[in-house]
Structures are given as C-alpha cells and as structure tokens.
Design a protein around this nucleic acid. Sequence first.
DNA 1: AAATATACATAAGATTCCAATGCATCCAAA
DNA 2: TTTGGATGCATTGGAATCTTATGTATATTT
Lengths: 113, 113
Amino acid sequence: MIYSSELIKGTLKTIVLKMLEDNRKMYGYEITQKVKELTKDRIQLTEGALYPTLHALENDGLLTTETEYIGKRMRKYYSLSPSGKGKAKERVSELADFMETMKLLLDIQIKPA
Amino acid sequence: MIYSSELIKGTLKTIVLKMLEDNRKMYGYEITQKVKELTKDRIQLTEGALYPTLHALENDGLLTTETEYIGKRMRKYYSLSPSGKGKAKERVSELADFMETMKLLLDIQIKPA
DNA sequence: AAATATACATAAGATTCCAATGCATCCAAA
DNA sequence: TTTGGATGCATTGGAATCTTATGTATATTT
C-alpha cells in the first residue's frame, strides 16, 4: 500500500526528530533511506520536503549541524540540540496520543505491540 | 492535551467520511459536535476547514446533499454516495495501515483495543 | 561509457488548514 | 424584553506544508 500523500502531512517533523533521537547524528539522505527501510518502502521522504524541514528545525534551534567531506562529496550531519531532545519527546508523545484518539474516533483495531 | 494543528492535516477527509458512514446523514455543525464529543474535546474541527472539505467531497461525487428547514433555519444534510461508501472504507483502512507504520517507525506503544 | 546511486539544494505551484469575519435564527436568562 | 450565547451556513486572506521539477556535482556499478 502506498499512502496518499495527505497522510504524511504534519508528521514529517516528528519523524525527523525521532530519527535523530535514535541515531544521534544523521545526514539528509541517510534519513530518507532509514525511513524507507524501517517502513518497508511505504514512506519515501522527498528531498523537496525534507531539506526545507531540516533547515526549519535548525532555524528553530532544535538541530545543530556539522559538515564533513567524504572524498569531495559534502555531508551535512544533523544532531538534536538540548531543546531538540525535549521537542522530540514532546512531538512523539503528542502523535501517540493523537493516534489513540483517532483509533477511538475511527473504530480502528490496532494490534498490540 | 491539545493537538498541534499540523496533525489534523491529512485526516480531515477521513474523519468526515467515517462520521457519515456511521451516521448516514449529518449536517456540518453536527459533525463538529460529534467529533468533539467522541474525542473528549481533543479535536475541534474549525468551520473554515470543514465546509471547504465538505464541498470538495461533494464535488468529487462522494457526498450527496439535501436541504431541510428547521423553522426558518437552513440545514444542509450530507450523506455518502455509493462511491463515497467505498471511499470511506478505503480511507479508514489506509489510515489504519499508516498508523501501524508510524507505530513501528516511532516505537510507539499502542494499547490494544 | 552510461546509468544509477549518493548528496546537497531551491523554486513554482497545489493543497490544506486556520483565523477572522459575516449573516441569520433560536433560545434562555437577566 | 432585550441581550448574549448557541446554532448553522458560508467565504476570504493568509500561513504552512508538501510535490514536482530542476539544478549541481561526485561516486559507483554495469
């Protein structure tokens, strides 16, 4: 199943924050690949959505960056700042709560973990 | 907890379709109240979002309408068309699947129903 | 040698939602 | 009895978010 793009809306920031919470330090392309892998190809982040989001999170002080070169190719690593760590927890828990609510609202049966 | 509005994005159409699937015939204001009630005030649909959505669904042939007057006050009832019924099931099941995926991605523990 | 993958980024446009506003009716309380 | 709150429709302007397309460049695989 491929999700209609509408569903992804509003969750991208949360996904990015969570990936960085789990992995400490990642670069953009790596995030797209990790998400693709973890979701078995169901969610494929587009670069046009991802990079602006990373920049916005950085602008908000939630991410810090460091640039590395692999050969001549640039890699821009992103990490959670202290406030980013707080924000990550906040966002994930908010989404979890929202999903609980949607489950009730839509009569959706969710398999236990 | 009040959800940051971003989360609602992408789910509004699904919510509306589901409400009409369960209730056969509803008017706009009734939908906002029902959703508010079912979610214990956590989701409050705004009119600026709801009405354009209802019109869009109607335009897509998923909803039919009938107007009634209660005294002098107009009421516009919305119902699922045959294709709307199919779409409702499709959307809800897509959202359920998406939530499963997000659960895995974000390590969220969901309580069993 | 060419195609694919890696890796960054921006721009134009569509979609979607919110906040604000407007109109009108009905009902309850002051 | 009149005033405020709830009911009920709707639109508009603007913000936010994502997609598609494009651009640049290097590395790897075929």
